[in-house]
Design a protein around this nucleic acid. Structure first.
Lengths: 154, 154
DNA sequence: AAAAAAAGTGAGCAGAGTGCCCTATTCAGG
DNA sequence: CCTGAATAGGGCACTCTGCTCACTTTTTTT
């Protein structure tokens, strides 16, 4: 795998500060030439350093102000089919396969508590799902961030 | 709160398909004029429909191939201070306050199992933290998505 | 039904950013 | 000492943006 040097790290830091930053602006803040920035960004892009470009949409705007995490316990040998079934539930916005107490950690959005109850029921109704544990998210007390990790590498 | 009409929804769909899409391209695909797209995007932006613009960085590239979720049980009245303490741990990339079994759901990245063990120890060492439950994420079986919700509104 | 307000269109323009090219310089490793 | 990679600097055609203005269509209000 490609490993980052100091300049790459600085690039990623600058990008974290302002993801919309242009190549020209990056070159300017880092004191590099535009060509260099462009070349390095291409290398980073090719190496898979970026997961994607996102204009993140607020689920609340879509009418889903509540977020919840649901731990799902399943019959493990049916896991693959269960994931397919869960993917059909629109309110499930993300799911991770887990090693630990639960088999799946599912993130859902909902309109209210009753809606959450309903969605939980839909999940439980999937063949092979044995038990769920629902927790309502009260807030993102630490917003997603990578900056501290970037800062540590200097 | 601002509520979306059909055109807004189509805009958000097009943006989900290609977040990098330009106003010109959006206008083209939706059969609208560039002015209209720009005006609507500004309205959406102002109404808080977008959480932000992200060029998401792959933690693996930074040397953290493993992701884990840690449920943290705390003395609730110390919650505020605990969040401040946790924010000092760089490997914690996100945290949600929860109502349910656990008080906090913390998302961490780490280099390997030993690293995870160490981070867990750091969390446990925080004053007021009583218990943690760690689960290693094996994979994102449903990648973050809002498309199904958008599609449902037509 | 008529008037007013809101939304959309089409055009234009200056400035900025992009992708691509080519060449010169610097610097480390063989 | 030579070679190759990284960087710098310049240039060029093109697209996108932010902005403005005038005009038309649609919707809402009176």
């Amino acid at each position: 795998m490609y490993s980052l040097d100091k300049t790459d790290t600085k690039l990623l830091q600058a990008l974290s500060d302002d993801p919309r930053s242009t190549f020209v602006a990056l070159a300017d803040t880092l004191g590099l030439s535009r060509n260099t920035v462009q070349a390095r960004m291409k290398r980073l892009e090719d190496s898979g350093a970026f997961l994607g470009f996102d204009r993140r949409i607020n689920p609340a705007t879509l009418g889903y102000p509540l977020t919840a995490f649901i731990e799902v316990h399943v019959q493990q040998k049916r896991l693959a089919q269960i994931v397919i079934d869960l993917a059909l539930i629109p309110e499930i916005v993300q799911a991770h396969g887990m090693s630990g107490q639960a088999d799946l950690l599912v993130r859902v959005v909902c309109t209210d508590a009753a809606d959450l109850f309903r969605i939980d029921g839909t999940i439980l109704a999937c063949d092979g799902v044995e038990r769920t544990e629902t927790s309502l998210a009260m807030g993102e007390v630490i917003p997603y961030r990578l900056t501290p990790l970037l800062d540590r590498r200097g």
